[in-house]
Structure formats: C-alpha cells, structure tokens
Amino acid sequence: MGCVLAKKAKHPVGYEDPIILAAETAFTVNEVESLYELFKKISYSIIKDGLIHKEEFQLALFQNSNNRNLFADRIFDLFDVKRNGVIEFGEFVRSLSIFHPKTAQDEKIAFAFKLYDLRGTGFIEREELKEMVTALLNESDLFLSDDLIETIVDQTFKLADSNCDGRIDSIEWKEFVMKNPSLLKNMTLPYLMDVKMSFPSFIMNSEAD
C-alpha cells in the first residue's frame, strides 16, 4: 500500500498524440480520437494489450480469428510498418488515412502496388498474380481450371505489362489503373468521411479543445 500516487499509464504502448496524427493524415483531431475507439475495440478483442495482433485483425474482418486470407495478411503486413508483428495506433491511423476519400489517388495506387507485390521485389510478377487469383478462387469456393487461370493471368499481363518483360512495374501499374479505375475501388472507404458518427464516444473522451 502507500502507492496512492502510482498511476497506471493512461495509454498503451504505441499510442500517439492525436494532434500529431491529425497533422500528418487526412483526419481531424476529433476523427483521430474516434478512430481510437475503433482501435481499442479491435486491439482489446483477444489479447488485451492495446495493440492489434493478426488474430484480432482477422476477427474484426471475418468474425473468425482463424480465417487465414492472403489479402488480409498483406494488408496487416503493410499496416505493420515497423514489422514487429502488431499494428500500433499510429500505424493504424496513418494507414487508414490512405483509404480516406480525400487522399490523393497516387498514394492509393502506390499502396495497391505494394499490396500486390507479394515478395516486395518492386514488381508484380506473373507467379504472384497467379498466386493471388488462386487464393481468391479458394476463398470464394469458385473453381476454374488451371488452363483458365493461366489464360486470365496471360490476358491481364497483355494489358498491363506494356514493355513485355514479364512483370508489372509501378509505372505500368499506374497506367493500367488509370485505364481501369474500378481496381482502386476498395482503396477508398466512404466511412472515413464520417468516422465521428460511427464511433461517437470521442465526445466523452476527447482531449482536444
């Protein structure tokens, strides 16, 4: 006893000041505080440490913490900028900012390129594209013959790989996306225009003036 002054830290490891995060992202301070409500919900869902572990991310996306999914893994890895196996609050806010409707298209194009460049070589290679198509088909319980998958991948490369070197570089990717803007559809989350409505408890917890 006698520890009346000992106070538990208010925020967990990885917490960053909303004022700084707002200055560096597309969000306002109040929106960052609202995002903290969402972050807390996810980051305390299994392991109560205020960090998003992969199982918690899977649980939030699929209502099942064991649902392995190549694309969710890629998103998790890209959000985990420090590559320490967890998503911290600052990483969460900065990454989500890319999905903000007001964020420049170039940032979204670059993020999608990194997402699909599975091995981080700076190119989307043919094998990577085939692996992603196969993963999507498995996820959807759709069956296509290997021949048809090959045809789809070949056809896509004919359209996207303009210098015909067997891999898609970031410039070819940008050109391809400009011609096929629907490919960026899931890089924009309209919900982010209205975060305060989704997670209104910021009003109770706000530290901003």
Binding site: L38, I42, A60, L61, F62, N69, L70, F71, A72, D73, R74, I75, L96, F99, L115, Y116, L129, M132, V133, A135, L136, E139, S140, T151, I152, V153, Q155, T156, L159, A160, F176, N180, S182, L183, K185, N186, L189, P190, Y191, L192, V195, S198
Partner: peptide, 25 residues
C-alpha cells in the same frame, strides 16, 4: 462482353480487402 476477366478485378473482390467491414455496426 470481355472474353476474359481481368485478374486484378477478380482479386479486388477479396473479402480480405474489404476494410469497410471494420466500420459496420
């Protein structure tokens, strides 16, 4: 109708890429 589907169109439909789910309910 295009003869063959664009592979990126196909993979962009993955549930794993639908972060909107995080904001629902």
């Amino acid at each position: 109708r295009p003869a063959v589907m664009n592979a990126f169109e196909l993979i962009s439909t993955s549930q794993g890429l639908n972060l909107g789910v995080l904001f629902e309910k």
